[in-house]
Design a protein around this nucleic acid. Structure first.
Length: 409
RNA sequence: CGGGGAGUGGCGCAGUGGCUAGCGCACCUGGUUUGGGACCAGGGGGUCGCAGGUUCAAAUCCUGUCUCCCCGACCA
């Protein structure tokens, strides 16, 4: 894309009252725009990041058999009454419609929706197991939205639900999901600091698991073993005598919750009467699991991890809005513009995603904007580089053919 | 929801009762510039969050209200 055509611009300043690094970087770089507390528009650059995160998550969910669907965000009161959660989830947006006086909710999670749907298709052990997921906007009436996109009232989330004939089958799938989650975080660039963390199982089971990205700005306190890359959530630390995997002493730190997986077992199956007839002819409840990843929060976590101050950022390759950023420095020089244009065309024709800064701006502005936007590969085309026989990449001048070989998709 | 801070051109800010509300950035016109956010000259853009009150006079004082940010509590 030609940067001159991008309708957003970078901003030199954002309000000093906004302290969160992810918010400052993403606002300054023109990735997001705030509508109200905890509610943001994803602008072209930001939405490209969101779609890249979604793509990675989709690929890994598909790899463990997840079938993608899209459920409603608008829910009738009745399904939430079935589980008794209409009155107990305080973050649930509830309201009465104007015309019909019907009471409805905006979805904060979707067990109440997916379970009745599954019931319509599950009758026999032959119909199980399966897993289905969606990537959708969730609504949660947080008492206090904060930290930029890390805790919003409206956010994008992937939620996968699995359905099984037995607890053993659920357990086996749960382990597969853990591996898939590790692959997701690795591809997001935060694999090395995202630890599987033991957390309270709530009413469902002994433990659930979170995926916690270690961060000084994290709002969760976790106790970690760096050798095993395992953590223990604050709420259950009293039950642990050390690392649950190797027994070593745990170190206290802060982290951002990047994912959360639960064994729901039969809690929701029981509420909705989701059962199947087994081989022996007896009726049994379906075992369920649920597995969440905050997509928009992941964008914030990645920003926090890769930002340097609030003016410099480098996106990991797979999530970056573009792979290559071409800066044409001397816009009044025909040979510079011709070379940059050819490079832009050649790279684009191989499928490489390129942001081409063709704007009539001074070099300083272009460098500053590029630092902020954070595209991982930067190519500088200038009179100086052409005199030296090529373009600049990674601090050295290389020829166009060599560059194309390196950066072509 | 408790505590704190803040709402003033598009953005960031200054302005503690008294001229026609300023500054930087951005924007428009002309010119000079071009390797780390250029410079000169000229120009446009504001019911000072909203509502009420006090006063000869309110961005400024008082009351209410809305909103944003931070801390805490909360976070199926």
């Amino acid at each position: 894309m030609r940067q001159s055509q991008l309708f957003t611009k970078t901003r030199k300043d954002v309000s000093k009252s906004e302290e969160a690094t992810n918010a400052r970087i993403l606002l300054k770089a023109g990735y997001i725009d705030q509508l109200m507390a905890g509610v943001y528009t994803y602008l072209p650059l930001g939405y490209r990041v969101i779609r890249n995160i979604e793509r990675i998550v989709r690929e890994e969910m598909n790899a463990i058999g997840g079938q993608e669907i899209l459920m409603p965000a608008l829910h009738p009161k009745s399904v939430w009454e079935e589980t008794g959660r209409w009155d107990t989830i305080d973050v649930l947006y509830r309201f009465t419609t104007h015309y019909t006086g019907m009471e409805v909710a905006l979805g904060s999670t979707h067990e109440e929706i997916v379970t009745p749907t599954a019931k319509k298709f599950v009758a026999s052990y032959k119909d199980l197991p399966f897993a289905t997921y969606q990537i959708q906007t969730k609504f949660r009436d947080e008492k206090r939205a904060k930290s930029g996109v890390l805790r919003g009232r409206e956010f994008i989330m992937k939620d996968l639900y699995s359905f099984h004939t037995s607890e053993e089958d659920l357990d086996a799938y749960y382990e597969k999901a853990i591996e898939a989650y590790h692959r997701v975080y690795k591809r997001l660039g935060i694999g090395s600091t995202t630890y599987k963390t033991y957390a309270s199982g709530g009413t469902f089971s002994k433990y659930s698991h979170e995926f916690q990205t270690l961060s000084p700005v994290g709002e969760d306190t976790v106790y970690v073993c760096h050798d095993c890359k395992i953590g223990v959530n604050e709420e259950i630390i009293h039950e642990m005598d050390g690392c649950p995997e190797c027994g070593a002493k745990l170190e206290q730190t802060t982290a951002i919750e990047a994912g959360n997986i639960f064994k729901l077992k039969t809690k929701f199956s029981d509420s909705f009467g989701l059962s199947f007839t087994d081989k022996d002819g007896t009726e049994k409840p379906v075992y369920m699991g649920c597995y969440g990843i905050g997509i928009s929060r992941a964008m914030g976590v990645i920003t926090e991890f890769f930002a340097e101050g609030d003016s410099k950022m480098t996106w990991p390759e797979e999530v970056a809005p573009f792979k290559v950023h071409i800066l044409a420095l001397n816009t009044d020089k025909e040979d510079v513009m011709n070379t940059a244009e050819k490079l832009y065309q050649d790279l684009s024709s191989t499928g490489t995603e390129v942001l081409y800064d063709d704007r009539d701006e001074r070099p300083g502005s272009k460098f500053s904007d590029a630092d902020l936007i954070g595209i991982p590969h930067r190519v500088v085309v200038s009179s100086r580089s052409l005199e030296q026989g090529g373009v600049e990449y990674n601090g050295e001048v290389i020829s166009l053919p060599d560059l194309l070989t390196k950066l072509s998709a």
